[in-house]
Write a protein that binds this DNA or RNA. Structure first.
Lengths: 106, 106
DNA sequence: CAACTATATGTCATATTTGACATACATTCA
DNA sequence: TGAATGTATGTCAAATATGACATATAGTTG
C-alpha cells in the first residue's frame, strides 16, 4: 500500500497503523474499503444534489443524523448493507449502485 | 409483488407471509433482497467453477461451512458485507462484483 | 449394508452494527 | 454578540451478524 493511500484511510479513521496491518492488507481487503468509501461519497453527493440536510435524510431512511454523518465520513462502524439500503431508499437504482461499486474513488 | 416472487423468497426463508409485509415491500427493499440473492448465486457458481467444497471455501475466507451454506442459500441472517468480502477473497474483481449487483437474478 | 464426503439446518455465545442521545464545532444572519 | 442551522464525534443499550458446533440429510463407493 502506498503512503498516500494509507494517509487517506487513516484520515477517515481506519486503523492501518500497525506494521502487520500495513503489510497485510490483501487485494480483497483494500477493494472492500475502497468500495465502502465510494458508497460514502455517493451518499453524500446524492444528498447534496437533493439539497437535503442530514436530519432530513435520516428521517427518510429511518436512521439518525449521527449515523448519516458517520456513513458519509466513511466511519469503520458502518456496514455496506446500511450504505446500500440508504442509497436505495433515496431512489438510487441497482444499476447506479453497480456503477458506484465499479468506479475507483476519486 | 407477484406470487411467484413471493414464493421464491419464502422458499429461501424470508418472512413475507404477513399481509403488512406483503404490501409494504418498497422498491428499495426488494432491490436490496434481489441484490443479495444475486450475490448468493454468484458465490455458489464461483465456488463450483473452482471445484471447491464449502469447507475449502470456508477456510479460504476464514468462515465456517455452515455460514457458507447459509450464504449460498440466501439466508436472511447473512449480510451483504460478508457476501462481498467472500467474493473478493475468492479473487472476484470489483468490476465483476458490480456486474453481479446490476444483473437481475436469473 | 456401512463408511465417507458434501451440504443443510438449528442453536448459541460472542462480536459487530444500529439508532438514539448528548454535545461539540462551524457557519450564517440579524 | 447570540440565536439558528447543519454537521461531527463520542457513548451506549439493543439489535443483528458471526463463527463454531452438533446433527441431519443426501449421494457415492466399497
Amino acid at each position: 500500500m502506498k503512503a498516500s493511500k494509507q494517509q487517506k484511510l487513516e484520515a477517515k479513521g481506519w486503523k492501518v497503523g500497525s506494521a502487520a496491518d500495513f503489510l497485510d492488507l490483501s487485494a480483497g481487503e483494500s477493494a472492500y474499503i475502497e468500495m465502502k468509501l465510494a458508497l460514502s461519497d455517493a451518499l453524500k453527493s446524492r444528498r447534496l444534489k437533493e439539497r437535503m440536510s442530514q436530519v432530513e435524510l435520516a428521517n427518510k431512511v429511518q436512521s439518525s443524523q449521527s449515523r448519516i454523518a458517520k456513513m458519509e465520513a466513511g466511519d469503520p462502524s458502518v456496514s455496506i448493507d446500511l450504505l446500500m439500503k440508504s442509497l436505495l431508499a433515496m431512489g438510487v437504482s441497482r444499476t447506479e449502485l453497480a456503477k458506484t461499486i465499479a468506479e475507483p474513488v476519486s
